[in-house]
Nucleic acid binder design. Structure first.
Length: 372
DNA sequence: AATTCGGGGCA
DNA sequence: TGCCCAGAATT
């Protein structure tokens, strides 16, 4: 390597944008982009907003069905704003990151009150909506109103990092600034929506995280990462994920056809969703059936026997692995039980549960013991 | 500035 | 398994 060659970290300071990037990307978009999605070309800012919230940290294939169900259930933002929280959470059930759902409702009501039912049409007002950050505001502003704001999402970061060989971590304050600056520098000012759509589709279908299509990539000739064989190692993330294990023991108290449920309120996973009376242990616990019965009786003294036990079932989350076991306890009456509400099977179906619990409820294990 | 918020798909 | 996904809010 020549002495005059600068180190990778020193090479990249200001924007390194070159005029070749955007035209080539737009050409690919116009002639080779095959990606189709129901909200493409959508002009209703409500539907654009809805699709963007659903797609935060969520693959298009996973969010698609949810988007279609939401649009059908709530065709306008007024419909969504006046909906029952419970019904909206039920529609969101299984999608994850449930604060998005809570913020969705808050933002809909914000638009009805603060903006008199008209979706805000400028970047700062859009950004002021609950659950709307820099990415989503730029997406709505450009797709909905043709405003010149460049989106910066995982696709954009990957495309820029590889094309310019940017090895600065993107998950830091300066890293985010760097990629935002780079994205802004490449925005097609006269066609912001087209440009944003192009770079995201390109990142999703060509410049993919794993097994990118470099062999047929129209950007290959100018791509620094390809030239230096660093495609697989870019972009760079600085922080590593720390996971922990949690052990949940759920007690299903049943009186006839009624089951005791409660809503999670703590600032923890699954906030606002429903569950059952829960005992969490710092470590997995081996108990005899007698010991399980004694524990159940501490919660509900009337319990006489354990009808069934299932699990542990495992649920992988980003920062946690949940191991959940279920202890089914028939009761003679609803006296002296933990706080919560008694619901029948029909009501149970209308409540939003974490996927782990919903899977258990719909599994044969639950049905076998006449939970329904 | 660091952490936390789900669930699924892929190599 | 580890990483990523049309990120944002909280601490």
């Amino acid at each position: 390597m020549p002495v005059s060659s600068s180190s990778p970290s020193r090479r990249q300071k200001g924007p390194v944008g070159q005029p070749w990037f955007t035209p080539t990307l737009l050409h690919w978009h116009a002639h080779h982009n095959q990606r189709s999605m129901p909200w493409k070309g959508e002009k209703d800012p409500y539907k654009i907003w809805l699709s963007e919230i659903i797609l935060q940290q969520t693959r298009v294939e996973q969010g698609l069905a949810y988007y279609l169900r939401f649009v059908e259930a709530y065709p306008t933002i007024a419909d969504l704003a006046s909906a029952d929280d419970e019904a909206v959470f039920k529609l969101w059930e299984g999608l994850g990151y449930y604060s998005r759902c809570r913020n969705l409702l808050a933002a809909a009501r914000q638009v009805m009150q603060q903006f008199e039912g008209r979706f805000p049409n400028n970047y700062n007002d859009i950004l002021s909506l609950k659950g709307v950050g820099p990415y989503t505001a730029a997406a709505i502003a450009s797709f909905g109103f043709g405003l010149p704001h460049a989106v910066v999402d995982g696709n954009v970061i990957r495309v820029l990092a590889r094309f310019y060989g940017i090895d600065e971590p993107f998950d830091t304050t300066t890293g985010k600034q760097r990629f935002t600056q780079e994205a802004d520098a490449h925005l097609a000012q006269d066609a912001p929506a087209t440009y944003n759509q192009a770079i995201m589709d390109f990142g999703a279908t060509v410049c993919k995280p794993a097994a990118p299509l470099c062999g047929t990539c129209p950007m290959q000739s100018q791509c620094v990462a390809f030239k230096q064989q660093r495609v697989e190692s870019l972009p760079v993330k600085s922080k590593k994920l720390i996971k922990r294990d949690r052990y949940f023991y759920y007690f299903l108290f049943r009186v006839g056809k009624q089951i005791l449920v409660r809503q999670r309120q703590a600032k923890d996973i699954w906030q606002d969703l429903y569950e059952f009376p829960l005992v969490e242990e710092p470590q997995p616990v081996e108990r005899s059936e007698t010991e399980w019965l004694q524990l159940a009786q501490q919660l509900a003294p009337q319990v006489k026997h354990i009808a069934a036990m299932h699990g542990p079932y495992r649920q992988l989350l980003t920062h946690q692995t949940i191991y959940a076991s279920f202890i089914e306890c028939p009761l003679p009456s609803a006296k002296a039980v933990p706080a919560g509400q008694w619901v029948n099977a029909e009501t149970l179906r209308q409540l939003a549960f974490p996927k782990l619990l919903r899977d258990y409820l719909t599994s044969s294990s639950a049905a076998q013991t006449n939970l329904f």
